[in-house]
């Protein structure tokens, strides 16, 4: 047990007396009460737990919290600034992407990372970036459409 300090959504947070082996997923959910990041499989298969670790999408279920010490973590709660949804979140709402919605935090984190690196992704780019995220409800068609719509908005086009 040890104390670990990390930056979550731009705020420095200290976890007191924490098991360094605890996956970041459970540290976020149980200790920091940031429950937007979801548990689906625990073995880096479904992507429901995706967060950004130093700007890259990672599976927080498979990353010990000790590895996040001193690092910048962004979760789904940290995407919107001052209540202002990002272009992707906006597209998700406009196109009514979610069914149950449980996978969508992870989908958004993967999609956000994609658009940060590639402002005009092709279908193949989308396939590659999103293949790690399972949607059990099967909203893939809409996720693809929402990514394209958000990319267009971000590039300055209308939705």
């Amino acid at each position: 047990m040890t104390d670990i300090t990390l930056s979550v959504n731009g705020e420095s947070r200290t976890l007191k007396d924490i098991d360094p082996e605890m996956p970041l997923l459970w540290a976020l959910r149980d200790e920091l009460k940031l429950v937007g990041t979801k548990y689906g499989c625990g073995i880096a298969q479904c992507g429901a737990c995706t967060v950004h670790f130093e700007g890259n999408p990672v599976r927080s279920c498979s990353l010990p919290v000790s590895a996040a010490a001193g690092k910048n973590i962004i979760t789904v709660e940290g995407l919107a600034k001052d209540d202002q949804l990002t272009a992707l979140q906006q597209a998700w709402v406009e196109l009514d992407v979610p069914q149950c919605g449980y996978c969508q935090a992870g989908q958004l984190m993967s999609a956000t990372a994609l658009l940060e690196q590639n402002s005009n992704p092709t279908d193949d780019d989308i396939d590659a970036a999103m293949a790690g995220n399972i949607c059990r409800c099967g909203t893939y068609v809409r996720i693809r459409a929402a990514i394209k719509q958000a990319a267009k908005v971000k590039r300055g086009g209308a939705a």
Binding site: L34, V35, V76, W92, A105, L108
Partner: peptide, 21 residues
């Protein structure tokens, strides 16, 4: 019509059984 919980879903608000506290 966009789902009534969509905004809460995309911003990661507590909604699900697993989020109960």
């Amino acid at each position: 019509i966009s789902g009534v919980d969509n905004r809460a879903i995309v911003t990661g608000q507590p909604l699900y059984g697993i989020d109960a506290n």
